[in-house]
Design a protein around this nucleic acid. Sequence first.
DNA 1: TCGATTCTTGGAAGCGATTGCGAAATGCCT
DNA 2: AGGCATTTCGCAATCGCTTCCAAGAATCGA
Lengths: 347, 347
Amino acid sequence: MPTLTKQEAPTLRDVAAAAGVTIATASRSLTGAYGVHPETRKRVMETATLLNYKPNRSARALVTGHSNVIGLVVSDVRNPYFAEVARGAEDAAYAAGFDLLLCNSDLYADRQMRYINSLLEKRVEGIIMNSVANLSRKDQTFIVDSGVPVVLLYQSAGGTPFSTVSADSERGGELAAEYLLAHGHRHMMYLAGSRQHANLSKRAQGFLQVVRRFGHKAEAGVMYGTHTLAGGYEIARSLFRKLGNTTAIATANDVIAFGVIKAAIELGVNIPRDVSLIGFDDVELASIVHPPLTTIRQSKYEIGGAAVDILLRLAAGKDRSPEHRVLGVELVERASVGAPPSGRGKR
Amino acid sequence: MPTLTKQEAPTLRDVAAAAGVTIATASRSLTGAYGVHPETRKRVMETATLLNYKPNRSARALVTGHSNVIGLVVSDVRNPYFAEVARGAEDAAYAAGFDLLLCNSDLYADRQMRYINSLLEKRVEGIIMNSVANLSRKDQTFIVDSGVPVVLLYQSAGGTPFSTVSADSERGGELAAEYLLAHGHRHMMYLAGSRQHANLSKRAQGFLQVVRRFGHKAEAGVMYGTHTLAGGYEIARSLFRKLGNTTAIATANDVIAFGVIKAAIELGVNIPRDVSLIGFDDVELASIVHPPLTTIRQSKYEIGGAAVDILLRLAAGKDRSPEHRVLGVELVERASVGAPPSGRGKR
DNA sequence: TCGATTCTTGGAAGCGATTGCGAAATGCCT
DNA sequence: AGGCATTTCGCAATCGCTTCCAAGAATCGA
């Protein structure tokens, strides 16, 4: 009776032996390389499937120098925005025969760097990161020097050695402000999320700029926190306690807005009757919260896809110059913005 | 002037040469193996960091046979449930020094098998999958024969060669039914999501069983579809057109319930006045939709963590017997369930 | 002081694939 | 049939690392 030892996976050598060729032609047969007789190839492939052979990717990676995996470093997949980006990236990677390594950094510099190091050890073909704003300059040059293609999910006018792809954050901020202004709001508050977060501050910039341009009749404050539901909730709770004359709230993303909604429900403030709310992202759930959230739509899934597109071009090695792609945004009107309440919002 | 060739990453040989030792001791120094003089180790490590050396994981994996990566195959990370599980798994993997490869199968058998093949080629230490119910028996034995440790996010009483970890789906279904019954509902509809999905049907089972036990005074129908927001939306639209005497809807997960809410908003039906709704999962957003969703809470993050726990034990090789872990559920009461409307729901 | 341990290090054999180079085999033409 | 161009295939090197084995150095007890 044979001992029940752990079955070792068949190697190329096994296949070659069984097919009566050397591992060289076996390899060429399997990889589809030119220069092997159709008949022998057929034979090799049949024995390969027969033996249930699977090439060892580590071995292949070692000699070819290609791991065929790309790393995705986001702050948190639980953020529906990143989940969508991740899915877009994964689909694109899959289509190109690449695999996606998922990393959640929580935007902690040390954690992010540990991930990057790990990815570099894996010799990934490229890295998609939502941001490097929280990293020290030293860390950033470290990444640049490592030579991996990097694309950031963040809007840049250039000046970065990294490629970037993102929605037009600034324009989105502008849209939000214009919309609120058009509805008669003059005293607004912008919940900007993390100060670190480049995209979010771009959105704030766009927003504030429009308000400022509107003249002294309008004003907007900014509050920082974290760009999570909990963060929005916290800030909103304190904000609702002393709303003053602010009649509208704009948030840097939908999740923050969700936090605001949660706080509003708890504190009994009615959106949009008591205060208007506009988000950013147009996450799937934005349409079913109450009230349905008016927000700025950006193409999250496409951003993920574009990121790996760029990465693959960079990784191909022909043209290593960074690319900056920015996708359009649009306002989607739902029910969370109304006219300012007649009582407040007046001087 | 040196040609500006693409910088090749330094290898162990480079480090060894620079430190004046052989690659053998260099390796031992870096891996922390026993039996190298503290002083030489220090010297090696210093030159390693100086040269910015990073071990090639492919090479290491090739010789050690350990890839230190585990695969996560879910239907879609955009589903907040899986996003949470993914995060839990990723954190646990990270803590153990493992990496997580993300795969979205959409529950398509061919796509799932392609992923599994790819993961096997990568010689992953284990695979976490939400289900194998959609796979043919042949595919399933293929996976078993491959010898990788597998843990399913699905409840099993045993009988599977795979390990499983999940919430107590059946009990959850029971809780939902009991709660609805207690609120006076007698004519209920269960939106079960995919027929394939083992967890979801377990939930339906629990639900229906309680209703059945209640006697002929109560009844519950079942409708199948997809377990997505869109799926819930579709079904709810048709359901709302001919509600009949059903006064309460239970869904197999929160996302389906969200779809119901969306349809309700569009069609002007009021939850819970016109019809009550109870979900399953307690996704973060469940508390901020309108109305806040009464639902069954399960520990999604912990499930992800538990899955890699089991996987690592299995991968360690000592004990390869499958383990079945089931986590508790609890009802969280919010505002989507009320008494049945006086007009309907009577015989 | 000397043999016996114990430490420390080097040499070398792989891990499982890819691939350049040359040899053998085949086909084609005159 | 002979010569030459092509195919087809095998040999062996190599990728970067771990680890067994043995040899030299250091340490120790008596």
